[in-house]
Design a protein around this nucleic acid. Structure first.
Length: 785
RNA sequence: GGGUUCGUAGCUCAGUUGGCUAGAGCGUCUGGUUUACACCCAGAAGGUCGCAGGUUCGAGCCCUGCCGAACCCACCA
């Protein structure tokens, strides 16, 4: 007897800690290249490094992708699994502003960047610790950060290429602007938000002295009003078309025009149109021969057109103007109006349109290409492709990539001081930062001037992270491997960044290499709190990840993460985590039992043994399970795999098979005992391997005690294959039914299942000639008929 | 206004080309210390599958309409 191989209790904490250390020391997740084997390249989302908000959602989505990665590794792929840290850009700046109570306007640029870099380092370490705790099997020698010189170089090279291909342009035009963050933003950075505001009915006079009433939610934009519009079919206003009206308080005259866009039912049917600053299809109004009256500046304040209201921010100016309109008798009434407004997703501030010069990447004209290339990718689940399609359809603006921020990838551009001609730093000089590096140009190629000014804007973060599919190529030197890294095999990410990370990656891979960036997309849902609410800092409805891992251990939490089908949200559930812990214990105990009967662990070929029907039956069940579980992982439906595996392990293997062979394990027939032990061992080993991607710690611990041969880790071992026995049973269902019948009988009689009873007569039609002895022993009945 | 997903037991959810009596876990109830495991085992109760039609020999699954939820898009004077 060798029960001492396993202690009575599975010591989760100690064992998980041991393997974390050992995996790292032995470097078992290091990328190994075997030219004979296929590559499996994963472009994992580089998380934002401000790690204070880490919660189960992060654990969930990274675990879900990692189940598949571990599976692929065991299936014999050369797994290339790097990890990045997305540290450049707005989230880090915001984090620093909050943590240090500073503002980018009130601190020197360099000081601010230094703080960002410092936090970046702390954040990356937090993440690394967390992923290690969780058992995420990335190769820590393959890491990058999006602010590193390598990432800057790749990002800048991308801009150069786009510029050479005529896909990058700089233009002064009305753009989407966040007055809070003080920067241009892209369409993808917008979100819908409902606001309840006042709809103000304001009276103005036509030049002929007639009273007119408009309804507006934005009275502070009156100074920018350039026209009034009515629907051409609106009889009330037919006579007014072509006349002019006088704007109250500001006294300028505007024409009254018609457009089908105007809804006669809204407000008074008379609509005020302003130049930029207001939401709406700006371009359309601009082509209508209207004056340009810009009242809102990039600083979010009203300009000189606003007269006495100059230099006020929108939210300050609005009530003042309303007050003055009311005092002078122009305000007829106010109504409550609930409407949705585009806000900046980072700060929830309503977006304004301001006139500004920015860099853009052409995307609007190529919608058909984005759809075509998007459809070439295998979406898991398929339905999420629709999110992508809808997004591409709704594109209205080219991709504005310049940001008036500090902490990001610099544009490698110098402008001629005299004629504004942009000069791109040549590729061999990258990475380049015009804010700190010397100017590389002597004379403007256009006007000959020798004065240059640096571009001080930075590239938005997505313009860099959209390069990750080919950025990770740069993490290896070997040319042969490089070629196989891109396009990648898998991009796993949550659904809310389909329109940013995924979309922009497709754009860049098409423009640079005319290919899709990755073959498969795995879209995960969100982790929710126990009530099904979104997890947010504001609600405080989550336990920080590190604490969670400390409380429950990695295996239990990973088990919880298998609970949601791919693409679905998943509620946090202590019960599910507990279930995962119980599963680990169950595996531990099963190993204890089986191994107490094995003297030596060795390679066993079951086909060579004289198997009994019950042994053949369990192997058949195992084979079915292997096929189903394998298929599930292949299709990224790890939750289905987990269900199939659990049904087999717990219900069929533990509750039936193990009970079925106990009389042999403890009996005197040595041959029969050996066969049963061997079968149980082989089947259990396969179960253990199939659980390895989900529960890497407990499976590794058990494996280390019961494996044979040279395989150092279960995670580097081969995925189980169905076993060919060359014989089969097909009448075992009736045996199961017969066993159930005896169990039911004993339970209803209040008799312990372990107690021998004198006799029993079956209702079930079972072949007693063949199975009588088996049923007597398993059911503990002396006489059966 | 448009789209996507979803609505199945008290709760959380499976149900993969339409096919015997609709499943699991948790919870509840009954019984059992059975030489791996009470972190266990055996069993029971509990569902007009959101509603109303339709197609079909047959619908939880397919079609139409409606109700409700979440998310996305558009409008947003």
């Amino acid at each position: 007897m060798t029960t001492e191989r396993f202690s009575k209790r599975y010591n989760r904490k100690e064992i998980e800690e041991k393997w974390r250390r050992k995996w790292s020391e032995d470097n078992i997740y290091k990328f190994r290249y075997d030219p004979e084997k296929p590559m499996y390249v994963v472009d994992t989302p580089p998380p934002y490094v401000n790690a204070e908000h880490l919660h189960v959602g992060h654990i969930m989505s990274y675990s879900q992708a990692e189940f598949v990665v571990r599976f692929k590794r065991m299936r014999g792929y050369n797994v290339f699994y790097p990890m990045g840290f997305d540290d450049n850009g707005y989230p880090t700046e915001k984090f620093v502003e909050n943590k240090y109570k500073v503002d980018k306007r009130t601190i020197s640029k360099q000081e601010f960047i230094d703080l960002c870099l410092k936090e970046t380092e702390i954040g990356a370490q937090n993440y690394k610790d967390l992923w290690t705790q969780l058992g995420i099997s990335v190769d820590w020698d393959l890491t990058y950060s999006t602010i590193s010189p390598l990432a800057v170089k790749v990002s800048q090279r991308s801009l150069l290429d786009l510029n050479n291909k005529g896909l990058l342009y700089r233009k002064e035009s009305p753009i989407l602007w966040c007055t809070q963050c003080d920067t241009a933003v892209a369409q993808a950075d917008l979100e819908d938000k409902e606001f309840t505001v006042k709809l103000n009915y304001i009276t103005l006079k036509s030049v002929s002295g007639k009273d007119l009433t408009i309804a507006t939610t934005r009275p502070e934009l009156l100074p920018a009003c350039v026209a009034l519009y009515v629907n051409p079919n609106d009889k009330r206003y037919k006579k007014l078309v072509g006349l002019k009206a006088i704007i109250p308080l500001f006294q300028h005259e505007v024409p009254i025009k018609t457009s089908d866009e105007v809804d006669p039912e809204f407000g008074t049917g008379l609509m005020m149109v302003c130049t930029w600053g207001d939401q709406g299809d700006v371009k359309k109004w601009l082509t209508d021969g209207l004056d340009s009256r810009i009242v809102l500046g990039r600083n979010g304040k009203l300009n000189e057109l606003a007269g006495v209201y100059q230099n006020l921010r929108v939210e300050k100016a609005r009530p003042l103007i309303i007050k003055d309109l009311d005092r002078k008798g122009f305000l007829r009434k106010q109504e409550e109006l609930t409407h949705t407004v585009n806000v900046h997703e980072r700060c929830n501030t309503p977006i304004e349109f301001v006139n500004s010069k920015q860099w853009f990447i052409k995307i609007v004209d190529n919608k058909n290409i984005w759809l075509e290339f998007g459809s070439k990718i295998d979406w898991h689940p398929k339905s999420r492709f629709n999110d992508y399609r809808v997004w591409v359809d709704s594109l209205k603006w080219d991709w504005c990539i310049s940001r008036q921020r500090y902490y990001g990838v610099p544009f490698p551009i110098w402008y001629c001081n005299d004629c504004d001609e942009p000069h791109f730093v040549p590729e061999e000089q990258l990475p380049h930062n015009p804010a700190t590096d010397n100017c590389l140009f002597e004379k403007c190629r256009k006007c000959g001037s020798s004065k240059f000014i640096p571009e001080v804007d930075v590239v938005e973060t997505w313009a860099t992270s959209s390069c990750t599919p080919f950025l990770i190529k740069e993490l290896v030197k070997n040319q042969e491997i490089k070629e196989k890294v891109f396009p990648n095999s898998l991009r796993p990410n949550a659904f809310e960044i389909i329109r940013t990370w995924d979309f922009y990656s497709i754009v860049k891979s098409y423009y640079h290499f005319n290919t899709i960036p990755f073959k498969d997309l795995m879209i995960s849902g969100h982790g929710l709190d126990e009530e099904g609410r979104k997890i947010s800092k504001r609600l405080g409805n989550y336990i920080p990840s590190a604490e969670l891992l400390e409380m429950y251990g990695a295996d239990g939490i990973r088990y919880w993460a298998t609970g949601a089908e791919l693409g679905s949200n998943l509620r946090f559930s202590k019960d599910e985590i507990e279930k995962g812990k119980r599963l680990a214990t169950k595996l531990w105990n099963a190993a204890r039992l089986i191994c107490s009967h094995v003297d030596e662990f060795k390679e066993i070929n079951l086909a060579d043994l004289n198997l009994e029907s019950v042994d053949i039956w369990i192997v058949q069940q195992l084979n079915k399970t292997i096929s189903k579980v394998t298929k599930g992982f292949e299709e990224y439906t790890y939750s289905i795999s987990r269900n199939d595996l659990e049904e087999f392990f717990w219900r069929i293997f533990a509750d039936y098979y193990v009970e079925f062979i106990k009389y042999r394990l403890y009996g005197s027939d040595i041959k029969s005992k050996e066969t049963a032990t061997a079968t149980a061992y082989v089947v259990f080993l396969a179960i253990l391997k199939m659980y390895a991607p989900i529960l890497p710690f407990v499976t590794e611990e058990i494996y280390s005690r019961i494996s044979f041969g040279s395989e150092e880790s279960i995670h580097l071992s081969n995925w189980p294959e169905p076993i060919n026995l060359k014989k089969s049973v097909n009448d075992f269902d009736q045996v199961i039914q017969a066993v159930d019948e005896i169990r039911k009988h004993k339970t209803s009689q209040g008799v312990s299942l372990g107690e021998w009873i004198e006799s029993y007569k079956f209702d079930t039609n079972v072949d007693l000639k063949k199975y009588k002895e088996f049923l007597q022993n398993v059911g503990r009945v002396k006489v059966l008929e």
